[in-house]
Amino acid sequence: MTYTASVTVTDQLGLHARPAAQIAKLVKSAIDSNPALVVTVKHQSGKQAQAKSALMLMALGAKSGESIEVQVDGASDEAAAALVAEIQGLLIE
């Protein structure tokens, strides 16, 4: 099962260390309860990152106002949508 959704970085400072760390923590705890889960984030520049690594998320260089694509594999659409909503919540400042 692949679920894809777009989220917008509205934090004024872009996807910097603090939200990146919060997203990585969230994704890691989701993986703990579902080891099949893979969450990938794609940036318009073509770069992509595993969402369980805060540093890889920071390396995307996503700026405020840009959209990033979140791809969730290995979860039900319902669980994936809930996860994406939580990620969007962490990108609002």
Partner: peptide, 8 residues
């Protein structure tokens, strides 16, 4: 969070 980052 970052101190145990897989990639790091």
């Amino acid at each position: 969070e970052i101190v145990t980052d897989d990639v790091l």
